[in-house]
Amino acid sequence: MQSVACPTCGAEVSFRSPALPVRVCDYCRTLVVRTSQSAQAMGETAVLPFDISPIQIGTEGRCFDQGFQIVGRVRWAWDDGAWNEWLMLLADGSHAWLGEAMGQFMALREVELTGSLAQVIRRLMNDTPVKPGESGNIAGHAYEVADIRTVRCIGCEGELPFTAPAGWEALSVDFRNRDGRCASFQKDAHGPSLYVGQYVTLASLQPRNLRALPGWSLHPHVA
């Protein structure tokens, strides 16, 4: 763990993983980027609107056959809604995302966009339009395009692998397959990225330290 002083407010900002160079200052919401010697302010993020997600920074559990801890979050919005991408720091030091939308959860890990890619992915990389229902193979499994959206970042917190400035826009394409697997393709000004994983239930994550929500008792299956 490395600690630096926030370049804006001077509060202590700690970095847990060398792979996560970005941290949102808990006090002034400055995006602090760690370099080899120092820390640099990269703008300020918006205050996250109130939501009643059961996840919070510090929630722990098991995913991808190992323990994880939630260390960060990016909140994305599109014309008809918003969702959370929680950053899981896994026990082996790598990270993965826990997407939370419409009360459903998706555990996703980034895969490299190399090798023989499905035609639908190549077309997305070339900015050729695709339609929901188109299919293609991703990492050995057949997927179907579920939806295509232009999304924008509306805020973030905690530690992140990249800077997530408010107003950052990306193309987001969700894939689904028959066995409950899912994949997500994102493309922004910096280039494309691909994430694969599966739908998970909150209970299957064996979560601890869930967020307590006033008026609600912890779900008996996850408590």
Binding site: I52, S53, P54, M102, G103, Q104, E144, R176, N177, R178, D179, G180, C182, Y199, L202, L210, L213, W216, L218, H219, H221, V222
Partner: peptide, 29 residues
């Protein structure tokens, strides 16, 4: 219907009969 820890489901009422609806995350075969 909503529970922050369990997500969403539906109660459907027709002719006075009730059903509980759950969205599938995996497409049927």
């Amino acid at each position: 219907l909503f529970n922050p820890y369990a997500g969403y489901c539906w109660l459907i009422a027709q002719n006075g009969q009730w059903s509980l609806g759950t969205m599938l995350t995996a497409a049927p075969q």
